[in-house]
Structure formats: C-alpha cells, structure tokens
C-alpha cells in the first residue's frame, strides 16, 4: 500500500517528469531514468501491437515480486506510470487524478511547452497533495 514513484512519459518516449515518494526505490541517475522511460515506451509500443483483436491499449500493469508498475495511456499518447507496492488497489484512480492535475496545471499553463519537461510549481504542489 505504498506509492514509490511517478513518471510522465511524452508521446515520443521522453521522460518529462519523474518523482520519487518515500525512499522505497534505489535512487538512479537522471540518465538511467531516461533510459528506463525510453525502454518502457518501446515495450509499450510492442505490447500494443500484440493484441489478438486488432491494436489494443498495450501493457497496463507490469508486476514484479516487490513492486507493481501501472501504466495509464492518454488519447494523445502521454503515459503516466505509477510505481507502487504489489497490492495497491488505488493505483488506477490515483493515475486518473494525476491526469486531471496534469490537464489543469500543465496543459493550461501558458509557460509550458508541450512535450518538454514539466517545470510547474503548481503541478508539484498538487501532486504532493495527492500522493502523501
């Protein structure tokens, strides 16, 4: 029942936002995070073509022994990834709310350039308020 981290990946596979909560995850360099995000983007692109009934949504959950990765894909191709403990029933709803905050604090902000890293104080504070 813990949330370890949140990533936002743009439609080109670039990591535009990364934040750890608590200290459940071993820290990595920003370069390693970029590689991880790019790899996940590639895996996601492949899984979305594996569906037997035409193109699907791609991987939604990736589970490990000690963590779970929940992926939420928006219609515009932005991916929100939440890293949690294996039993985290609220992951999907948290991601929905993150999407809502993203729409408000990032997309409506005139000083944000689309597809570029998110540098918005409002986004930071609202995410912090959502995930404590």
């Amino acid at each position: 029942m813990t949330i370890f981290g949140l990533w936002v990946i743009n439609k080109a596979g670039g990591l535009v936002y990364q934040r750890n909560f608590g200290d459940g995850l071993p820290s990595q360099t920003s370069n390693e995070y970029l590689v991880l995000a790019g790899t996940l983007h590639g895996i996601h692109a492949i899984t979305s073509r594996l569906s037997p009934t035409g193109s699907g949504s791609g991987a939604q959950v990736i589970e490990g022994e000690s963590f779970k990765m929940t992926i939420f894909l928006t219609p515009t191709g932005t991916k929100f990834v939440l890293l949690t403990s294996p039993i985290e029933p609220t992951a999907e709803t948290v991601l929905q709310k993150v999407y809502e905050i993203y729409a408000d604090a990032v997309m409506k902000n005139p000083f944000h350039t689309p597809e570029m890293p998110i540098r918005s104080e409002a986004f930071d504070t609202r995410i912090a308020a959502l995930i404590k």
Partner: peptide
C-alpha cells in the same frame, strides 16, 4: 488559477 510563472519571470 492554472498559470504557473517560471522562476526567472
């Protein structure tokens, strides 16, 4: 409400 001005401005 949704405007977040960058630090340099």
């Amino acid at each position: 409400r949704n405007v977040s001005v960058p630090r340099d401005m």
